[in-house]
């Protein structure tokens, strides 16, 4: 039973952080697309802004691995 809880916890760690990342990226991405339509020279800045929330899911992934391997 303990294994089930561990697997569930790991899944939640990745799943919830992935959802949060997706939500943040959708907001930033749509704003970024609007920005690029007016100022294409800001593409580098927009890539950075879109990429920033990805850290959340990576952290979630690290937490999941820690849960499964501890």
């Amino acid at each position: 039973m303990e294994k089930v809880y561990l697997a569930l916890a790991a899944a939640l760690a990745v799943g919830l952080s992935a959802l949060a990342t997706a939500w943040a990226q959708s907001k930033i991405g749509s704003a970024g697309a609007g920005t690029l339509a007016e100022k294409p020279e800001l593409s580098g800045t927009v890539i950075i802004l879109v990429a920033i929330p990805e850290t959340m899911v990576i952290l979630g992934f690290v937490v999941a691995i820690t849960i499964l391997t501890m």
Binding site: G44, I47, I48, A51, I52, E54
Partner: peptide
Amino acid sequence: TIHALRLHYV
């Protein structure tokens, strides 16, 4: 490409 770039840019 995206992730290696991001690691540099951010």
